[in-house]
Computed example of a mutant assay.
Amino acid sequence: MKIDVIGDVHGCYKELTELLDKLGYRDHDGIPIHPEGRKISFAGDLTDRGPDSLKVIEKTARIITAGKGYYSPGNHCDKLYRYLKGNKVQIKHGLETTVEELNQLNERDRKTLRDTFMKLYEEAPIYQELDGGKLIVAHAGIQEKDIGRYTKRIKEFVFYGDVTGEIMENGMPVRKDWALHYSGQPWIVYGHTPVKNPRIINKTINIDTGAVFGGKLTAFRYPEAETVSVPSSMNFDAARFREYPGS
C-alpha cells in the first residue's frame, strides 16, 4: 500500500494543487490520480485562515468519494462542522475566513457545500488506521495505548494534542511532547502544531509545516518514509511555529 499523507492544508488550495503535481498526481475529471496507484491521506484541518477553504473541501470530498484517498478531521474541521449544524461557536481563530467564503455563496451553493462537508465529516474516522495498522494518521497525534480504541478522551487528544490547559505568552496553548514517549512500531503521522521542517521522533512525524503561516505544505510518503514539500505563497509568521530543543 502506497500513501501520501498531506499535512494541515488550512485553505491553501494553490499549494495543495502544486504539491499533488509534485507528488506525481495528474487530474482526471477533477480527481488526482497517481500512475502507481498511490492514494492520498488528509491529516485534518482542511479549512480556516487560508484563502480557498471551500475549494479544498470540494477537492477532498471528490477524492474520498472516488475511493482515491482517506480523511480524518482536525479541530478546525470539527469546529466548522458544529457551526454548520447550527451550534453556537466562536467565529474566530480562522473560522471567520471560511464563514466569509460561505457568505459569498448563493443559498443553493451554500447548501450544497454544507451537505458536502457534513457528509465528509460524518463518514470520517476520528483517526486513520491504514495498511493493516502499520500507518496511523491522527490530526494532533495519538498515544500508543489508544490505537484501536475510540473514546471521547481519545477524540479530544486526537483533535488538540496533549494540552495542559495553560496558555503561552503568544496566546497558543501549552502542549506536552507526547511523541517523546512513543515506542510503537506503526508510523504515526500527525500535524496540528506548526514546525518549520518535518519533525521525526521515534516513529512519529509531524508534517504540519505551516503552509498557511508562510512555511510549506508537506506530504509524508509511505512506505518510503520520505517527505515532499512545496513553499507557501502566504506571508511568513515566525511566531506561529513551535521550536523544539535542538531543532
Results as ranks from 00 to 15, higher is better:
Q143R: 14
Q143W: 10
D146K: 00
I147L: 08
I147P: 02
I147H: 02
G148K: 09
R149A: 10
Y150S: 11
T151P: 08
T151V: 09
T151I: 09
K152E: 15
K152R: 11
R153I: 06
K155A: 13
K155P: 02
E156M: 13
F157E: 05
V158I: 13
F159S: 03
F159Q: 05
Y160E: 08
Y160G: 00
G161C: 09
G161Y: 03
G161L: 12
D162E: 15
V163D: 06
T164L: 07
T164K: 07
T164E: 09
T164R: 09
G165R: 12
G165T: 12
E166S: 09
E166D: 14
E166N: 11
I167T: 14
I167Y: 08
I167C: 07
M168T: 09
M168L: 14
E169G: 07
E169Y: 12
E169R: 13
G171F: 04
M172Y: 11
M172D: 11
P173E: 13
V174M: 08
R175L: 07
R175K: 14
K176Q: 14
D177Q: 12
D177W: 12
D177T: 11
W178Q: 11
W178V: 09
A179V: 14
A179R: 15
L180H: 10
H181N: 10
H181M: 06
H181K: 09
S183E: 15
S183K: 15
S183L: 11
G184N: 05
G184L: 03
G184T: 04
Q185H: 13
W187I: 01
I188L: 01
I188H: 01
V189F: 12
V189T: 04
G191N: 04
T193C: 02
P194L: 03
P194S: 04
V195P: 01
V195R: 07
K196E: 14
N197C: 12
N197I: 15
P198E: 02
P198K: 03
P198M: 07
P198R: 04
P198D: 03
R199W: 11
I200E: 06
N202T: 15
K203N: 15
K203I: 09
K203T: 13
K203P: 11
T204F: 01
T204P: 02
T204E: 00
I205Q: 00
I205T: 00
N206I: 11
N206Q: 08
D208T: 03
D208S: 08
T209H: 02
T209C: 09
T209A: 00
G210P: 02
G210S: 13
G210D: 03
G210H: 05
A211E: 00
A211V: 14
A211W: 01
V212E: 05
V212H: 07
F213T: 11
F213Y: 15
F213N: 08
F213D: 04
G214Y: 05
G215W: 01
K216A: 06
K216T: 04
L217S: 05
L217E: 07
T218R: 02
T218C: 08
T218Y: 06
A219P: 02
A219V: 05
A219N: 04
F220I: 02
R221Q: 10
R221F: 02
R221S: 03
Y222I: 01
Y222L: 01
P223V: 09
E224W: 12
A225W: 10
A225C: 11
E226H: 06
E226S: 03
E226F: 05
